[in-house]
Design a binder for these strands. Sequence first.
DNA 1: ATAGGCCTGACG
DNA 2: CGTCAGGCCTAT
Length: 273
Amino acid sequence: MPELPEVETIRRQLQAELPGLRIEKCKVGLGRLVTHPSPRTYCRNLAGRTIGNICRRGKYLIFELDNHLDLVIHLGMTGSLSLVESPREYPRHTHIVFGLSDGRQLIYVDPRTFGETAVLEHADYSPLRGLASIGPEPLATDFTPERLAAALKGTALIKAALLDQRRIAGLGNIYADEILHRAGINPCRRLNELSPVDIERLHTSIHEVLNEAINGRGSTISDYVDLEGEKGGFQNLLRVYGRSDEGCPVCGERICMMRIAGRSSHYCPSCQK
DNA sequence: ATAGGCCTGACG
DNA sequence: CGTCAGGCCTAT
């Protein structure tokens, strides 16, 4: 799915297009994607609203609307957004259509339908569990090594902890693996065995990997595309994710893969201790 | 902590 | 046919 860098790429494109436009109407084809309130009320609340800034929290997109409402969209594993001008035919797996005041439509497409969307009172995230309990933004200026250390308390495996959105917002399987490789930390290490130096390295790696991935407009493993339908550019620069049995770009050792926390984890046994 | 479930599609 | 996939929730 879109992780933080992919969602941020889409957010920037939305921010360049949408503010000032009005949502004239909204059509939901697959009601279970609308988590709050009911699909009917969701559409009724959106109709007539003017779009303000587009924000991001972790992997959630938040469209600020007038009337103190927020439109929240999570892209799940395979969700994508695109702007179209009254198409004769919608793409396969189009589930939601937002008609805009400039005649264009913002459409939500999602083959696996793991995404979700909601309309909330501005900044009241309580109806969405994932958003209500989300951890700190890793690229915020106040995300210091001390805050990272605080987020990584306990005895969990570091790989599982990085994937836990309540600890840190926005990391997924690709960037968790890339960050651990960059930091030289084995995904099986436990939190309570990380030294202050490890935390420092992790902090630096989180910043580097996320910023580089955003600059590369995200990674396309199979089907991620941005608002313009473009694939990302960072997949070519991934050092371990999806590269099992290839040589580590740092030391040449064969990259390994194992399952941790139910997810495939790619790492270099020589660089990551 | 781990497995299973939610879905569709690609690939072997 | 089976296995796997950028996520996340539940139940055990």
